[in-house]
Simulated scan of single mutants.
Amino acid sequence: MTWLNWTPKLGRFSAAAELAAAPEEVVDVHVSADALLVSMIEARREVDKRLEEQKEPALWSQKELWSSPEAAALLAVEGFLWKNHARGSTLDQLQKLSGSDVDLRRVAGRSAKAADIRYLAAGSDLFDEHLPKALAWSLREMKEILERAEAPLLSWCGCDLDWWDIVQKKAPLPFGLRSPSDMPASACGEWKLLCARRNDGDRFVPFDTPAGYWERSTGKAGLWLLRNGAVISTVVISDGRQRFALGFKSALF
């Protein structure tokens, strides 16, 4: 069975290695979001003197990458596409969007500016270069999700979580986590993409594979965002040999 992001592609590989393996002009969905952000930040280094003395973007932590204005723009594009899709826009209609779309530019530009007020001051050429890359990656990611998303095994799921209460830190996450900030660094990008894709009516549930998977070092535990019964975003909290003491585990197995 092929699960969305079951072979983790967001924040699991070396961004530098991915960029070296992919032609610069190609924005491939199989290049992770992390690697896309690295390429965009590298482009900004050429015009933003603040980055000259910082380490290379390929060496940035997940937190640094996903706090950048490039990440804010990418997440805004993701949110724009998924919210329009939830409101009835088809994938074919969304694929006709371009980097010159007025509404898209306003949403992405506002988010990037909120993350770094000096980002847009680097020049409109930079934003004009970044926005089509973010749009192309997001559309290809959306296409893959919609084509491959499968109904989850409900026996692997815990009770529905209240996304808003968790974001507002009014309720804890499962896995012994007090809030999203306690997630492992590798889940940072996946969590932010999940939040960007979320829309009213979506279900937000924890999942845990049965014990046999963990015994074979193939276990996974994390969070699913479900829409119309299909997984549209996954956050892997624990995998392989190490597992958390899952609060909902005893109710499932």
Rank of each mutant, 00 (worst) to 15 (best):
S179D: 06
L139E: 06
S233T: 11
D103T: 11
P57T: 05
N228L: 12
E18T: 09
S89E: 13
L74A: 15
V29C: 11
Q168L: 14
L246S: 11
A221T: 05
I237C: 06
S238Q: 10
R227S: 03
L153A: 15
V167D: 10
G247M: 11
L161C: 03
P57D: 09
S89H: 03
F80C: 06
L51R: 08
M40L: 15
R45H: 12
D101Y: 01
A21T: 04
V47L: 13
I145F: 02
V77H: 08
R227W: 01
S67H: 02
W224M: 09
S186Q: 12
M1K: 15
M142Y: 04
R227Q: 06
D200G: 13
R243W: 10
V167N: 11
A115W: 01
D116H: 07
W66F: 13
W82L: 00
S233R: 02
G247C: 07
L104M: 04
Q95T: 12
L36S: 07
A187M: 10
R197S: 07
F248D: 04
P184L: 09
V107Y: 02
C157N: 04
L246Y: 09
E25A: 15
L194D: 00
A58R: 06
T209I: 05
L104Q: 03
A251E: 13
F80I: 06
V26Q: 10
M1P: 14
V235M: 06
E129Y: 12
A73I: 10
N84G: 07
W164M: 13
A43P: 02
P210S: 05
L94C: 06
R140Y: 07
V231S: 07
A86I: 02
R203S: 12
N84K: 14
K170F: 14
G176R: 13
Q93H: 07
E78D: 14
A73N: 04
A134T: 11
P69G: 09
E64H: 06
W163R: 10
D103N: 13
G222D: 02
M142L: 11
T218R: 13
A58N: 03
